[in-house]
Design a protein around this nucleic acid. Structure first.
Lengths: 218, 218, 218, 218
DNA sequence: TATGAATGAGAATTCATTCAT
DNA sequence: TATGAATGAATTCTCATTCAT
């Protein structure tokens, strides 16, 4: 199995690279299709066509429609969670962490509305397995926030609080705004809502206002 | 008015009453089925069977699956919004209004988890028309809150605030909690989360803590 | 049964008159609907609505859809055949008979395009029973022509001829022109084709040209 | 061109050949089924079964029932028109052309009564699209005749005539005879009617009788 | 007689998945 | 690996007919 001929190995490597490439292309196509048509309405034919391959080709890379969606969800969730975690790590104090996380999420979703739709709308009613996966993603995300809240509490920056519930509420406030935007297109620029949303969340969590910044909309 | 026509009228009235009754029975059955199987998985056969009628009977009362769901959504939304509006009207000061509205919603959803699931999960990815209707319901609900926030602001009870965004955030925090409960069953008792949620929302909105109360649902 | 009370008798007569009236109204509505939607596409609901009555009402007067169509066909065929027979009786010589019959048919169909459609198009593929009825009508009509041809032959006005085949051909030539008109709307004025058609049929049957008349389209 | 790709090409060619074969098999089956049951009564299940394939297979090759019928109509019309055109081209003088065309049509329909039924009866009331297609076929056929009439007129073989109307009448006479035969089975042998029909049409068109031939049925 | 609610047997069509090539 | 033809179960919706009132 280990490179009997260099040619075989080279070709195998090339093959693997190609396979990975095609896999990615299928995932990209799937994102576009699931977003445009919805999970149920989207057909494997749609995906195959969008990926410029055949139905059989899709089935070679993914065992089924559900697993395709799941893979897509995972890939997207990893991106979202990783970016958020990085942003949280970069910021020093709790207030800054909150701000940064908020910015990352809003920016990410603004840039990838399709992805937002996938998460917030389509995945919810797709299938039990997908629903489960989505719940998991939400939990991981809320967990990220909760951890920070615990740290902030221990540092004495914020008062006593139920970190899980607070994180969920925080997540939900953000979530609802994005969902409305995804579904209705309003506000036209999602990021413009950031300052006010930041203020609301800070107040909810009991993070003291840093005073200086942002255009108070008194 | 009496006399020769009364018989005809009576029979017609009876018919209409029966028809209305059957229509309600179908809606009840539809709620049960859509809840148990999800919008997409549910079939009109299921609904007919659950309503102890025939497929044709369902189609006599509703022109299609989507319209059936829409009718159901409307009926349920009216109930939810009306109850909440009543509760808001009963309470006097903003803090009490928030508390009461929260209680009503949590109690309603706790009592009708099926309905909650229908609203929060299934409807979202059902079809564009249903999605639109759902967005509308969410907006009406957020509007209810926004109106109160404006009143509270004018009464000087709370500070300057963007009422729409705040209402959306408020709604979202609540929504997310209920959704988690619907999807995961946690917390086991949704209403137990009320006091802490109340505290968070109050803080977010800037409603002064009345001190004494909480976890006493006196 | 014989007028026990004048009131009863009167009301019964009135009833019968009303019933006949309604029956006619339903037939009129059926003609309109079958013509507009085609036999298969037309529903009993359509007919009932067009007749401003209820489905049950239609079923009271006619045992079923097929019988309704049959009754309509018969009523229309009677009209067509009777008018043609009258016209044939009025004319004296074979040439005049042909001319008159042609005029009657073209005028009748021009005035009642719906009826023409019913005969020439819808009835053909409706159901075996209806097809049988239609074949019968065609035969009766062709028979009308054939009888005249036999008489003309016996009178020595025309040469030897197979009367049945000639009648069928005659009928078909006419039929095809009307069908094209029904299906395509061309020629815009069906009756304008009469002179040329008359000339063709005369020649086919061997009826000598009366010379004088009509604008030769050389 | 040979070598590594030849295998792929060969397999692809094989596939295509098989697919084309299957497509033809479905068309053959459809002809049989539509003829036996009529357009409306025939179900896609019937067609699939008759083609020894699955419903999905039929839908793979044809997008729907109507398009299947349309494809069938086209295939059959092409056959009929082409044969007739060839026959017309083979004959030299107008009289011979008429004779040959008549023979071809009668022979073709006699041999394929199912096909005749499809054309003359079922297609007429099937659906607007099918109706349109059928009108088109009729027109093309009448056009074939009209062209010959114009040529004959220019050659001075026949007198002044409206070629379109004459062609339609000619076509109609033939059509009606065949339709009667399709619907009633009479005459038992369609081709036996040829001589007399020929005489009638010749006379109608003003083509001089060649004198010698045919068993005059005086 | 008239009404219209109810029935239920079907129909066309869709699409995830399989598999020979 | 890739292709695309083939499968067939499942689903929505239709409509002639019945019948209680």
């Amino acid at each position: 199995m280990s490179g009997s001929t260099s040619q075989g190995a080279a070709s195998s490597e090339t093959m693997q690279a190609r396979a990975r490439e095609r896999r990615e292309r299928i995932l990209d196509a799937a994102l576009e299709v699931f977003t445009r048509r919805g999970y149920r309405e989207a057909t494997m034919d749609d995906v195959a066509e969008a990926a410029a391959t055949s139905k059989g080709g899709v089935y070679f890379h993914f065992p089924g429609k559900e697993q395709l969606f799941l893979a897509l969800l995972e890939r997207s969730a990893d991106l979202l969670l990783q970016r958020t975690a990085e942003a949280l790590a970069r910021a020093s104090d709790p207030a800054a962490k909150l701000d940064t996380a908020l910015d990352v999420v809003l920016r990410l979703f603004t840039a990838h509305r399709a992805l937002a739709r996938l998460f917030l709308v389509e995945a919810l009613a797709a299938s039990p397995a997908i629903q489960g996966a989505l719940v998991d993603v939400r939990r991981r995300f809320a967990g990220l926030i909760a951890r920070e809240l615990i740290a902030a509490r221990e540092a004495g920056v914020i008062g006593p609080i139920d970190p899980d519930l607070a994180a969920t509420a925080c997540f939900g406030a953000l979530y609802e705004g994005v969902t409305q935007w995804v579904l209705t297109g309003q506000p036209a620029d999602l990021e413009q809502a950031a300052p006010e949303l930041r203020r609301l969340l800070r107040r909810m969590l009991g993070i003291p206002d840093s005073g200086k910044e942002d255009d108070a909309r008194s």
